[in-house]
Computed example of a mutant assay.
Amino acid sequence: MFNYLPPLNEHNLPYPDTIHPIVVHFVIAMVLFAFLCDIIGYFTRNPKLYEVSWWNLAFATVSIFIAVIFGQIEAGLAEPYAASVSTLNAHTVLGWSLTAILAVITGWRYVIRLQERPQLPIPYWGASVLLVALVFVQSYWGTLLVWVYGLHTIPVVDAIREGLS
């Protein structure tokens, strides 16, 4: 059965390079831009910015599922060494949690949108701030996995293949 799978390349992946970071950067940008639109919409009293925010959250919610799926595939192929395991595990758990949190906040935002409220409720603002904070924590952990631990980088993959961990 495994003979039909493509061979792993120098990044230990069956495709040219990691896909998870590419997709996840769209999610990060859309969540942060949605929050920025909410802030600007609040101060300018421009409801059109709330609509822009809603659409960014909707697309971010779809995209985060794609990001998590590729993240799981690439984490499974990473062969993490001892020093990186706790960060990878935390990043994985928060990634799945963010998927649920973002879906709930987007659903909540949809209900607010249907009610055509002129302002966003204060509890929603609190949830948005929490979402942005969690996105920053998740981004930090993802950065550690690539730039400190070097997962899926050629030197680290070569070292693991040679048995140096």
Rank of each mutant, 00 (worst) to 15 (best):
V85N: 00
R109Y: 14
I112Y: 15
V111Q: 09
S63V: 07
V104D: 05
Y110I: 11
W96D: 10
K48P: 05
G76I: 04
E79F: 12
T106W: 12
A60K: 02
E74D: 02
I73M: 12
I64H: 06
F70S: 05
A103Y: 04
L88H: 10
V85Y: 01
A75F: 00
Y81A: 03
S53F: 05
T92Y: 05
T61F: 10
F65L: 09
I64D: 04
P47D: 01
V93W: 14
Y110D: 07
S63Q: 12
S86W: 15
T61K: 05
V85H: 01
L57A: 10
Y81W: 00
E79W: 12
T99F: 13
A103G: 11
I112T: 02
A83W: 00
F59V: 13
W96I: 13
A58R: 11
A78E: 06
I112P: 02
A82P: 08
S63K: 03
A100D: 07
K48I: 07
P47Q: 00
L88T: 08
A83M: 00
E79C: 05
A83K: 00
I64R: 10
I101P: 02
N56Q: 14
P47Y: 01
V85Q: 07
Q72D: 09
V104I: 12
L49S: 13
I112S: 06
F70V: 01
I64S: 09
T99R: 03
W108G: 09
I112H: 08
I69Y: 13
I105P: 07
A100K: 09
L57V: 04
T92L: 03
S84R: 01
V93H: 11
I66E: 04
H91L: 08
T61G: 13
P47G: 00
S86V: 06
S53P: 03
E51S: 09
N89A: 09
Y50S: 04
F70R: 01
P80K: 04
Y50A: 02
V85E: 04
K48E: 12
W55S: 14
I69R: 11
L77E: 07
F65I: 14
A83V: 00
V93D: 09
L94H: 06
N89V: 13
I69H: 06
E79Y: 12
S97A: 15
L49N: 11
Y81M: 00
A100Y: 05
L98I: 12
F70C: 08
G71Q: 05
V85T: 05
A100E: 06
G76C: 01
F65G: 13
I64F: 08
W96M: 13
L57Q: 10
W55I: 07
P47F: 02
S84G: 14
N56H: 11
G107V: 07
L49V: 14
R113T: 08
N56D: 13
T87K: 08
P47H: 01
G76N: 03
I66C: 07
L77Y: 11
F65Y: 12
E79K: 14
R113N: 11
I69W: 10
E51D: 13
A60H: 09
Y81K: 01
N89T: 10
I105Y: 13
R109I: 02
V93K: 08
L77A: 10
A60G: 13
G76R: 02
A90Q: 03
I73E: 08
Y50D: 04
W55D: 08
I73L: 14
A67E: 06
I73A: 09
H91I: 06
L94P: 02
T87Y: 04
H91N: 12
S86A: 14
A100G: 14
A58Y: 07
